[in-house]
Each structure stands twice: as C-alpha cells, then as structure tokens.
C-alpha cells in the first residue's frame, strides 16, 4: 500500500514538472521579442499573412493570455507540439524520429562510464597511490577541463589520420546492405567514438567517486569482520564493499542525465550522429523555433523519466530505503 502511494506521488510529481516545462515554453514564445505568431511560424518576418492568420486562430492569440495558455497546454498534452514550417512536418514526429538515436547514444555512454568508471575506481582504491589512481586523476582533469566537442574532434583527427579504425561520422553506412544483425553491428561500430567521447567525462567522475567511497567502506568494521572470517579478497571487494560503494554513483548518474543530454548535443554535432542534438543544431540555423522548443520539452521529459527510473533503481539496490518506503 505504501509502495503504491509512493509510486503515485512520484508520478504526479513528474506530471507537474512536465506541465511546468510546457508553461516555460509558452512563456518563452511570448517573452521573445516580436510577434508570437512569428515565433511560432519559425520565420522571423518571413511568414505569409495567411500562415500567420492561421496560427493566430489556432493558438487563440487574440484571446486573453490565460486562454492562450490553456489552449497551448491542451494541444501539447494531446501530443501537438506545433508544426515545423522548415521541415514541413509536425514537431512531435520530427522529435520522435530522432529521439531513438539520442537515447541509444546517451545510455551507451552512461553504461560505459558507470561500468568502466566503477572498475577503475575499485582498482584505484586497491592501491590509493598506484598507477590506476594517477590515471583516474589525469582522465578526470582532462575530462573536466576540455570542451567535450574538442575532445571529440581530437578523436576524429586521431581516428581519421593516425589510426583509421573507427568511423568518425554518421550512425551507419548506407552503402552497406545485409540483414538486421549486420546493421546492428554497423550501428555499434559507429557508436564507439561518440559514446566514448561523451562517456569519458563521467567515467572519470564515477571512478573518483567509487574510489573515495570504497576507501571509506574498506576501513569499516563489517569489512574487517568479513576479512577476519576469511572471506576471499575478491569477494570482499565485489560483494561486500562495491555494493555499497556503487550507491553514490547511481545517485549522481541519475542527477547528471540532463547534463549528459547537453553533452550529447555537442557530441552529436561533432560526429553527425542523427539524434536530437543535430536536429537542434539544424533547427537553430533555420530559426525553426517550434522544433527547438519541442526538443527542449522532449529532452526535459527524458530527464524526468530518467530521474524516476533512478529513483526506482536506487530502491532496488539499497534494501534499507525499500523497507522505509
């Protein structure tokens, strides 16, 4: 009962956040300099009178602001995020068509960062002043200070000239035929560089975090007890210590989902990855406001969903929270 209540509360909370993002979009359209109809048309001053009249009618721009807001929210909640006059397609279709590529990139990068980061962190905690610790510090310094698009470009230069083994652009090779399986392998192959570029920043953070919490946990009483009982060292690390050390990583990874999407916008642009980031880039060049706002809305929804999932995972991993409800 308590569990259902908790889930219901979380979902309501998520829904309110989604509404708030829509209200923000609405405000942005109206705060922008110029005629809101022009903003919605996405062509500053270039839209035909007919088109503008159509928009004014559909969005009720001659009515009071609260009526406009109501109309806007009503349309958005029915999945109508407006029309892109640049692509001549509904914004929702555009965004939905590109979202898969971004979600694939972001989750791969995140999984890569969590897996490799935790592993490096554990190794580093084994020898706090050893080579791995030094390596982790070095990667985190670079990952923290280098612009992510620059790191990506350096990898492009490296893998286009010096070791041309990975593809540096696009999501798949259109000249290649074959079945679904070979297509999937091809996508994974194209995914390597963008995912590594995006993941490397977080990898170093997770490694540092794991190292710090492992060091703290390895000094605690229950680890000493485990060792005294003669539990194998690998089991002490893997089973006893890591299970607790990974909790902060899960929390941080969930909170960082928004910033990873921000990074994805840049990485996608560098590697011509056909996701929301490249769509945003093209939409900005074309001053296609409905599409840009649609992407902002959709990626915020992604973050909200990711936060929900993190919350549930956290409850799964940490039995203490599960009991408290």
């Amino acid at each position: 009962m308590r569990m259902t209540f908790m889930v219901a509360r979380r979902l309501l909370h998520a829904f309110l956040l989604i509404l708030a993002v829509l209200v923000l979009n609405f405000l942005l359209i109206h705060l922008a300099p110029g005629d809101p109809a022009d903003v919605i048309a996405g062509e500053m001053g270039g839209a035909t009178e007919e088109m503008l009249a159509d928009i004014r009618k559909n969005y009720g721009l001659d009515k009071p602001v609260y009526v406009q807001l109501g109309l806007y929210l009503g349309r958005a909640l029915q999945g109508d995020l407006g029309q892109s006059f640049f692509y001549n397609a509904p914004v929702l279709d555009l965004v939905a068509g590109r979202a898969g590529a971004t979600i694939l990139l972001v989750t791969t990068a995140l999984l890569f960062a969590i897996l490799v980061g935790t592993l490096l962190g554990v190794l580093a905690s084994h020898k706090p002043k050893g080579i791995v610790s030094g390596l982790v510090t070095l990667i985190s310094v670079i990952g923290y200070s280098a612009p992510i698009f620059w790191t990506g470009m350096m990898l492009v230069i490296l893998f286009a000239w010096v070791y041309p083994i990975f593809p540096i652009a696009n999501m798949y090779d259109i000249t290649k035929g074959g079945g679904i399986f070979s297509r999937m392998i091809d996508i994974l192959y194209h995914l390597v560089l963008p995912a590594v570029t995006l993941g490397i920043v977080y990898l170093a953070q997770y490694a540092r975090l794991t190292r710090a919490s492992m060091l703290e946990i390895l000094g605690s009483d229950y680890i000493r007890t485990a060792r005294a009982k003669g539990v194998a060292e690998i089991k002490v690390y893997g089973h006893h210590a890591l299970r607790n050390a990974i909790l902060p990583v899960v929390t941080i990874a969930g909170l960082q989902f928004g910033s990873i999407i921000s990074g994805a916008v840049l990485v996608e642009t560098v590697f011509s990855w056909p996701g929301l980031g490249t769509l945003a880039f093209d939409a900005i060049l074309a001053r296609d406001y409905p599409t840009i706002l649609g992407i902002l809305f959709f990626s915020s929804v992604l973050v909200i969903v990711a936060n929900l999932i993190t919350d549930f995972i956290y409850r799964l991993v940490d039995p203490r929270i599960r009991k408290e409800g």
């Binding site: 993002v21 928004g258 992407i295 915020s300």
Partner: peptide, 21 residues
C-alpha cells in the same frame, strides 16, 4: 530549483540565445 535542474542546461541556453539574439 528542481525544475531548472530538469531542463538540459545547454539546450535551455541555446533556446534563450536563439530567441533573444
């Protein structure tokens, strides 16, 4: 604050800069 943390920062900044020159 929570609301602002949900918005992907770079995308939000992109929207602001595009809308306001």
């Amino acid at each position: 604050t929570e609301f602002f943390q949900v918005l992907p920062a770079l995308l939000f900044a992109m929207v602001l800069v595009t809308l306001f020159s």
